[in-house]
């Protein structure tokens, strides 16, 4: 379990996160939603260690980030997989080399063993036969899948995804959503997704945290989000006519 207690972060005196407390459970797709500038990305970056919080505790299965030394921090990070918004694949490396990179860096396995593992994860994300392609030769959706493959190649305990659907067409976005959900359940990973995409939220958001101005405004599941009366959540999630109508129908049917 990842436990976050009273997390604060500010930049040049401007508070961005104001005392966030929450937990993220194993095997569940946790989603962080909120308007641009609400602190989602900063929160995610604090979780993965790219930003150091000013105060508060982040605990990974009992290991508090503040109490870890540099080496222990590095070891913890090897248990983390991250899918970046733009993929963050290494341009000069092929798909195979990109995915093999963490294996080469952190294991003593032979090239053949590494290649087997790479082929296994590529198959898992439905990207067989893309081994020798360079990131520039792939579509946005394929790049995201390679990024997911790289994130899970080390069998991480924690998977973080920063807007995995941004810039993708609806079909590909659904494929990516389902893939993340399947992987989370199959490997019992703690998955935290930062998203703007309301489709994803409704489809795979088993636990949703809504941030507003750096504060946790609301928390619940994708079922509960239909019934919530929280004005900020309703205004954000149901800002489009389509979603408002879907909500009305859902509420009528469940009365």
């Amino acid at each position: 379990m990842i436990e976050v207690v009273d997390l604060y972060k500010e930049f040049k005196g401007i508070p961005v996160l104001k005392g966030i407390t929450t937990t993220f459970e194993k095997g569940v797709t946790n989603m962080i939603i909120g308007q641009s500038g609400s602190g989602k990305t900063v929160f995610l970056k604090c979780l993965v260690g790219l930003h150091i919080p000013d105060s508060g505790i982040i605990s990974f299965d009992g290991r508090k980030h503040t109490e870890l030394g540099i080496k222990e921090h590095r070891l913890l990070r090897q248990e983390i997989g991250m899918v970046f918004q733009g993929g963050a694949l290494y341009d000069s490396l092929t798909v195979e080399e990109n995915i093999m990179f963490p294996l080469k860096m952190f294991t003593d396995q032979s090239f053949e063993e590494n290649l087997d593992r790479v082929n296994f994860v590529l198959k898992r994300v439905n990207l067989e036969n893309a081994n020798k392609k360079f990131p520039a030769e792939l579509s946005g959706g394929m790049q995201k899948r390679v990024s997911i493959a790289r994130a899970i190649v080390m069998n991480p305990k924690y998977l973080f995804c920063d807007e995995p659907n941004s810039g993708l067409d609806p079909n590909t976005a659904t494929v990516i959503d389902n893939l993340i959900k399947e992987i989370t359940e199959e490997y019992q990973i703690i998955t935290v997704i930062n998203s703007h995409d309301m489709n994803s939220v409704m489809e795979i958001g088993e636990k949703i945290i809504f941030l507003k101005d750096g504060v946790k405004e609301w928390q619940g599941s994708n079922k509960e989000i239909f019934k919530t009366e929280n004005e900020a959540v309703v205004n954000f999630v149901y800002s489009s006519n389509l979603f408002r109508k879907v909500r009305e129908v859902y509420l009528k049917e469940t009365k």
Binding site: G49, L50, Q78, I80, A88
Partner: peptide
């Protein structure tokens, strides 16, 4: 610089490198 703005350096850091 390109690695920085395309988050490739962040990806290295997240891996513990």
């Amino acid at each position: 610089g390109t690695m920085r703005v395309t988050e490739q350096i962040d990806a290295l850091e997240v891996m513990g490198i």
